[in-house]
Design a protein around this nucleic acid. Sequence first.
DNA 1: AACTATTCCAACCGCAACAAA
DNA 2: ATTTGTTGCGGTTGGAATAGT
Length: 373
Amino acid sequence: MSKRPGGTKKRLKRGLWSPEEDEKLMNHIAKYGNGCWSSVPKIAGLERCGKSCRLRWINYLRPDLKRGAFSQEEEDLIIHLHSILGNKWSQIAAQLPGRTDNEVKNFWNSFIKKKLRQRGIDPATHKPLAPAAAAAAAAPVSRSAVFSEAELILSSPVGEVGQHMPPLVSAESYVYSRGSMDGAAGVHAAVGGCSDDGSLSSLSGYNNNNQTADFAGYLDADALHGAVIPSVSSSSTLNSMAGVSPGGAANANANATDELCCNNNSNNHHPSNSGSGFESSTTQSTSNHHLPWLELGSISSCTEDASGAGAGADHYGAALDELKWSDYVFDGGYQQYHQQAQCIYGDSKAAADAAAAAQFDAHGLVGINWCLN
DNA sequence: AACTATTCCAACCGCAACAAA
DNA sequence: ATTTGTTGCGGTTGGAATAGT
């Protein structure tokens, strides 16, 4: 699959990765950790550019990737987040454990977009299409999960919304309502920092990486205390996985990751099983709530306690426990690398890399950290 | 069975941001 | 202050898989 002729001096391979190349890359990362991508091809003996290696790792090889179909909850969340964030795929993916920005983007472009149009909703604006266009686009849909805008706004459970969880807002309604909100409004106030480009810019700030902390704040900045559900789309994700957030967030993440480290009883690694991982786990937790992270917000916000950080963190950890991260491991030879889950490190990138290295170390592989340049 | 059209998704590209030299 | 290298992000592309004829 040669997309474009390469003009580099040494012809680099392009297109799909072979199993052999995957193995080389995996072996390299097992040995040195991930990072310093420019040197990876040389050391690993790959005829690829570092960028390609990085992408392959992030989007496909990483052991904590969740594979298989998107669950209804994920779909709902993507739609909602897109209504607020727009095409900020990395930020959206940051709220979807085990999903990459590329995966979310593809899912959006290939599935959700179409579905929204069928429901007469403009995927770009999340507003109803013009009547004629809507009628033309109207078609029976298989399930009720494609929302009208109002449904989008109120995708959290009845009761919880009214009591503890302010209704989620569409980008549009948020923009126009933000001025009237104050701190008491919780989520609304938190969301009030939307930047001009549609991203959320001044939310909790608990995490040293805004793009992941932002929406945690949106969900309920006070309640979540910066606890961010990690994605796999970037190293910043690992930051949050590693518990780099100051204050209460550290505890939250510590609890969460602690749980993760102990959760090794995955019983479903098959990527074709759409019910694995996230979906099945949320099923477990949906006796009370719709979306686990919304649940977190609502639960901890119930405490209304200045020391709620701990409570929120506990809930967060417990909920993450239910997420069964070990389910994200996909089958095949790489599973061996990840039956130990994430561990906790205290510092952003180094932590992320150390975490990655530690995974391999746990299996008797050399856990040397990388990038000594 | 053969061909064509469509869909899905892995991978690539260009750009921006950031850090180090 | 400037240059260089690295990383991350979003948009786009093209091939494989699938559906339709």
